[in-house]
Design a binder for these strands. Structure first.
Lengths: 298, 298
DNA sequence: GGTTAGCCATGCATATTTGTATAGCAGATG
DNA sequence: CATCTGCTATACAAATATGCATGGCTAACC
């Protein structure tokens, strides 16, 4: 009869073999030896009653079952990381490790001064910043605090509404000097537009249906928001940019502000399991108020 | 220097001590001995650099830190359980263990025939039914499939919209014979109403603001939906009940159907990590179509 | 107040797990 | 074609974790 509850260590070994591709590499990763890992995998297969790998001289090849089980083991690993971060807290003191996730634009253009100010006030807090445009991190405890453009509905999450961050169409003065300034929406068709490469459902929801803003019209297509912003700054053409962000740069000019205006509703979110972590709570409050100022700044 | 990544087994021991309250009880639970558990806790405290328990002759008293870390360890445990369920799948065959969570009413009054039909068609599938009115189970992998009255927004979840399950006001014929039948909403005030004990945000959203449906008016107050339904059947008075459910019982009479009608939007949800589990997928499909039939049945 | 039942800590023998060393195999390289 | 490098599997010795027995403590109960 297969053991119904394998030692949790076996899952850690399994995950390492999945990520590293071989027993030997996993052994290096975990500071163990290849024979031990081999026995772990054998024991786990016996306990679960399942084949996880087919052995080969090049390494272990995961079976379909192994791929199916991997995300669960990853969830375990994320939980251990979250637990260890939580253990860095100290009651009464604002110290420890806090992990944030945010989009590229926010992480690069908006957060740095906010984090610097927090760090100055709380020099004992270490911040981990996970830059990712994917939104599914928080539930799996891949981060403690997230900045989101979608309303979170899960009860396990503590949320604060930032408001709408406005988006507008911008171009660099240099570009406008040589190409002229469009005075109507239709005139945009004659310009070098900067836009997305692949349209995501989120983007489709964001833009009004009547705008001439489709892939075919773009003279620069990229899904990397930082690259798009850099292209605007470089005078490549006209693209969308967060209004409070562009407001800092006098060289960027907003075009047709009445016609071309979008808004991204924004939230700061934290996992309720981290409510007792004083550093997380304080950074949450700090980010919320700083982002509210940012959203209303122009 | 504290070890940054304790053995995962230590977390399992920690969780057992938290739930059982003492090293000795945890040892019985895990089929180990008290000295081993004691050493595990000591090692974990050393690795995390944190005090987890204060020793006492009555057992171990968790520190605040231990309470803060517990939910993360529970998340790990939930992940192991999900992984083991996933390992019961077999490619090509519809077999294994599937865990469902649903509300009490759905679990007791609606699901049983659906599950029985599925079981008949798929005799190799074992079903675990977790009856709970809380909605936060699926993210933490406490279940594979959930039936929800709130729109799930997480990308990690696979969802299917069932539609609106209608709610109406009902009374037993016996009650109406002796107390008469209310012909206006206002007339309800003279009747024995059955309703909630404590109002939740969900309930507050559900009911229209103009209904005379507040705690003070109720002649039977309970938050247990099954007890409320049983009271309606017993002729205690008038209460809300799912229309397709009441339709099966000729003794129950709907009152003021135009005035008193609510709807609960309903979804079937499953975790994407379980997509490869054939039994989960099939049960998901089965429940979705059966529940759609149910919602539209009256 | 003695007795019982629960708990944790410690010393010591045992059992289990781990690491070391080695053999064998497949593929890349000169 | 010999050589080198990567990998896994196995036998055996060393290290480690476990269980057992015991002692000491508190609280409850007769």
């Amino acid at each position: 009869m297969a053991n119904p509850d394998p030692q949790w260590n076996l899952y850690r070994s399994f995950l390492a073999v999945m990520s590293e591709g071989s027993l030997s590499a996993a052994a290096r990763e975990l500071d163990m030896t290849q024979p031990s890992l081999g026995r772990h995998i054998r024991d786990l297969e016996a306990a679960l009653g399942v084949d996880l790998f087919t052995r080969s001289p090049q390494g272990l090849v995961p079976t379909d079952m192994a791929y199916a089980l991997q995300p669960h083991a990853q969830a375990m690993a994320a939980a251990t990381a979250a637990l260890r971060r939580a253990a860095t807290a100290q009651d009464g003191k604002t110290r420890g490790v806090v992990r944030i996730t945010a989009s590229e634009i926010i992480s690069v253009e908006v957060l740095p001064p906010m984090l610097a100010a927090f760090r100055k006030a709380q020099p004992e807090v270490v911040i981990e910043l996970s830059v990712s445009n994917q939104t599914e991190d928080l539930l799996r405890k891949d981060a403690d605090i997230a900045i989101r453009m979608a309303r979170p509905t899960q009860q396990a999450l503590v949320t604060r509404h930032i408001g709408r961050i406005e988006l507008g169409a911008y171009a660099h003065k240099r570009y406008l000097r040589s190409h002229g300034r469009p005075e109507t929406v239709e005139a945009l068709r004659e310009h070098s537009l900067i836009g997305f490469d692949r349209e995501t459902p989120y983007l489709r929801n964001l833009r009004p249906k009547d705008l001439p803003y489709t892939r075919e019209l773009f003279a620069l297509r990229t899904d990397n928001d930082l690259a798009a912003l850099a292209a605007i700054r470089a005078g490549y053409g006209i693209g969308f940019c967060q209004v409070p962000l562009a407001a800092r740069e006098p060289q960027l000019v907003r075009l047709l502000p009445e016609k071309l205006a979008l808004g991204m509703d924004t939230w700061v979110v934290m996992h309720e399991d981290m409510r007792r972590h004083l550093a997380v709570r304080k950074l949450f409050d700090h980010l919320a108020s700083a982002l509210i100022d940012y959203a209303n700044s122009p």
